[in-house]
Design a binder for these strands. Structure first.
Lengths: 184, 184
DNA sequence: GTCTATACAGTGATAGAC
DNA sequence: GTCTATCACTGTATAGAC
């Protein structure tokens, strides 16, 4: 039960930061070493598959977070409060636009093909969970799908633009707007 | 006046494709060599500054295209037809969702800082030009800014999602939706 | 479990022949 | 203008001492 200071789970969020900041290709082992304070030997002890396994672990970690704090509530809780919770969770997770979406970033370049299932699943389940909540809230099936898509791609685009313009406040404005659009 | 077969301008779009596909870090010189059919010697003849100069040239090329076919019409032409033209141009340029936005992709990772001005300018001028057209069309200043932002980040997000889900049709749906939202 | 040392491929870049 | 050869360097990954 006693936990060593550095467990695999402890180092994953740090590695995630490096991937978020530099992308998959730009996240060199030396940068990861620097960020985590772990030598290559230790890193390969935790992740025998090397960089690819690190990215897989990071993606699983992100997925787990969203599954727990966003998707599952959307599927189970009262629709209105679950949707409200989603906006709050998203704003918090992406640090009000100061943080980038790792999955979205991976999706854009050649990295996508390496983590196809994880990337696809992340967005697909997000859209489906949100659509479910909207349907339960009384929206028609087709309209709910479109609404859910628009909310999710709106969030992604707002993150891109906020980072491109170095204007995190844009993210907050965008979330407000998207929230109103959803009307729930 | 006689043009050699391979001019700098001829090779820029090919290099752009490599950057779009693999990102800045992933676009190795060997991949660029392969795509263009030019050896490193030739590439460095055209771009003495190496990879960074190639990316700068590519960004300038993209910018020029948007300036000519999107921004300038938005500033000068009849607002309604200019906006309609924008949607058509965007759909064509991004191959109905099959192509990614290079500027958006650069914006997401550590590459951003290398090309700060180009990335910032691309989005800033897009939003401003669109806002101008909306204002001329009768929309209030503040609302026009928000609308313009929403259209631009909506496009970016739709590109991310279309690529993530390998579903180009999502891009077309999204454009339609954004177009209706703009209401012009 | 963590480190250092090292292997080896691939990187961006340069020089010089043609 | 294009190529080949080569450079110094960094990349990921491995081996083995502690």
């Amino acid at each position: 039960m006693a936990r060593t200071i550095n467990e695999r789970a402890d180092v994953v969020p740090l590695i995630a930061e490096v991937f978020r900041e530099f992308g998959y290709e730009g996240a060199s082992l030396s940068r990861i070493t620097e960020k985590t304070g772990l030598g290559k030997g230790s890193l390969y002890h935790f992740f025998p598959g090397g960089k690819e396994e690190m990215a897989t672990a990071v993606l699983a970690d992100v997925d787990q977070w969203f599954e727990r704090f966003v998707y599952e509530p959307l599927r189970q809780d009262d629709p209105a409060s679950a949707v409200a919770g989603m906006w709050a969770a998203v704003d918090g997770y992406f640090r009000s636009g100061g943080r980038v979406c790792l999955v979205g970033a991976f999706a854009l370049d050649g990295t996508r093909d390496m983590f196809s299932d994880a990337i696809d699943g992340y967005f697909r389940r997000w859209i489906e969970a949100l659509r479910d909540a909207l349907v339960r809230h009384g929206r028609g099936d087709k309209a709910a799908t479109m609404d859910a898509e628009e909310a999710v791609f709106g969030i992604q685009g707002a993150l891109v633009l906020a980072r491109a313009l170095r204007d995190p406040s844009l993210f907050g404005r965008a979330l407000k707007r998207l929230q109103l659009r959803l009307g729930v």
